[in-house]
Amino acid sequence: MSISLHTADVPRSLRPVHTRGDRIFRLGARGVGAFVLVLVGAIGLFLGAQLVPTLHRYGLHFFTENRWIPNRDIVGVSAAILGTVEVAVMALLIAFPLALATALYISEYAPPRLRNFLTLLVDLMAAVPSIVYGVWGYFQLQPYAKLISRWLAEYVGWFPLFQVPGGQPHSASWPKSNFVQSPFIASLVVSMMVVPLACAVMRNVFAQAPLHEREAAMALGATRWGVIRSVVLPFGRAGIVGGTMLGLGRALGETIAVLLILSTSYDLSIHPLHVNGVTLSSFIANGFNEATSGQLSALLAAGFVLFCMTLVVNTLAAMIVNRSRSGATTEI
């Protein structure tokens, strides 16, 4: 029984050998992950398939035509695409400063005891069903929002975007029906749904701002705003951009609240304060139940356009947020 002490030290192999059970487990888990990809792919595929008969029938005019008159065979989604972008961009313009302020308040200004509670409130705000926001927007917010519309049309009306055709803003009795159910009011309600989404991402990134850099700024005499400007905001830039884009994705796809507020005429809306307007999602949801089979495939093709728009925006946002997360460890 002699053991040779002179053999060279060879590190033992650490390559894990999976048992059969583990191989099944890893395969199953990978299968579930693949299923999610397949699901998203299938959504795109099945909706995209509806594009074929639609394009076959209407040609590329489907994307450029801004009227929807199925009886005369004139069908196009450009008005709805423009309306969707219009509502989403306005919602974002309103929601971005509010979300940023709320996120900064929770992470920098709020008393530490309240911080968890406020975070929970933001999550709750994100979970409030959109039908509730829609009902609130239509019955509660609209009476006040139309006053803002009127004020804008009255004093900033020289700017084309704030004009209201037939609004007669300076007359004593103003035609209220021209100021309600407008893309502007829809975007106010949508912004209520965008704020918590964007705020949650921003707050998360702000909370990860390195403590020693904060302390360094404080030691150099920075005020609270100085710390925010020099440490928190530069650190959280990716989170701000990513969160806003995630909110944009939500704003593009919001259906029920917009459907409740917008009047349902299919019009190219170039006056956001004026009564008419349409978005892709509200138009699809509104026309779906009465559509004939030909219109149905056109509506589904419009749904595919919506799917592509939101998927691109959301994937970009997810990538930006992920990059910021992986870079959360700062070099010393």
């Binding site: 999610v36 990809l37 998203v40 959504i43 909706l47 989404l197 995630l246 994705g249 939500r250 593009l252 796809g253 919001e254 259906t255 999602s281 699809i284 949801a285 749904g303 919506l306 799917f307 939101t310 998927l311 959301n314 994937t315 946002a317 997810a318 947020v321 992920n322």
Partner: peptide, 12 residues
């Protein structure tokens, strides 16, 4: 993809 799917319009 899961993160992008989170904000996928419910309508779709």
């Amino acid at each position: 993809v899961v993160e992008a799917m989170t904000a996928l319009p419910d309508l779709v």
